[in-house]
């Protein structure tokens, strides 16, 4: 369970990322966070694994408080939270398998990491994760040789290799074309259902948000302005969240012919 209690984030340059956010995300939920860029979606997701430090309030993940956690404890916490990024963030020159194995670093000693000697167990986990996203045949190919959709699947496999309790995804499909975006979202949904991993996804596209989210959280200026089910989030709600009328840019798949 992830609990935000009046959480605020102020960046060193004075910008407010989050402003008094209170939320509870129960285990196994598929949550989609929507909002314009700069609304604090990214900040919200990044506070959950401590990539962005919280400056006010309390944030606990599975009962562990993040605020003021030592580096070591933070690393331990991160090892149980997988993360997926907009730009995939794979190491390009390295094979797919080794990219996925970086998800096992948290339980690999210094000497083993230096020499790249991952245990057979870790390799098994990595292969298993690659099989789950259906890309195992590319295991020994360099990440840079894959298409965007394939790279994002490798990134998902990297997160799965951590055997996480929570998966965070920061705009995971913003760099992909609509069919690939749907495929990646389906992968995330399937993993959520099959493994019961709590999943928090930032999205910009409202159609994808409605289609895949159990619960939708709308953000504006660092505050939560909507929190409800996908069914409740109609166009009016989105206009409220975005603070403007909807445009063709806000959906991933446009009706053919409409607003090209």
């Amino acid at each position: 369970m992830i609990e935000f209690r009046d959480v605020s984030v102020t960046y060193p340059n004075g910008t407010k990322g989050l402003d008094g956010v209170t939320l509870t995300i129960p285990d196994g939920q598929f949550v989609v966070v929507v909002g314009l860029s700069g609304a604090g979606k990214s900040t919200l997701v990044r506070t959950i694994n401590g990539l962005v430090p919280v400056t006010g309030g309390e944030l606990t993940v599975n009962g562990e408080n993040l605020v003021g956690a030592s580096k070591r404890r933070l690393r331990g916490l991160r090892s149980r939270i997988g993360m997926i990024f907009q730009s995939f963030n794979l190491v390009n020159r390295v094979t797919v398998l080794n990219n996925v194995l970086t998800g096992r670093l948290h339980s690999t000693g210094m000497l083993r990491s230096l020499l790249g000697w991952f245990s057979a167990d870790d390799k098994e986990r990595a292969f298993d994760a690659l099989e789950r996203v259906g890309i195992v045949e590319k295991a020994y190919i360099r990440a840079s040789q894959l298409s965007g959709g394939q790279q994002q699947r490798v990134a998902i496999a990297r997160a799965l290799a951590q055997e996480p309790q929570v998966v965070l995804a920061d705009e995971p499909v913003a760099s992909l074309d609509p069919p690939t975006a749907n495929a990646v979202m389906r992968d995330l949904q399937r993993i959520n259902r099959e493994l019961g991993i709590t999943t928090v996804v930032n999205l910009h596209f409202l159609d994808l948000a409605r289609r895949y989210g159990d619960r939708i959280i709308g953000m504006r200026a660092g505050k939560v302005v909507f929190d409800g089910t996908a069914a409740e989030a109609d166009d009016a709600v989105f206009e409220e969240i975005y603070g403007r009328s909807l445009t063709a840019e806000d959906v991933a798949e446009r009706e053919p012919g409409a607003l090209a």
């Binding site: 996203v133 890309i135 389906r186 992968d187």
Partner: peptide, 18 residues
């Protein structure tokens, strides 16, 4: 887009290390 509905594939599909 082609391999969307994969369930765990059989282990035999794993490629050999180079």
């Amino acid at each position: 887009m082609t391999t969307t509905q994969t369930r765990s594939a059989p282990t035999g599909a794993r490629p050999k290390p180079p």
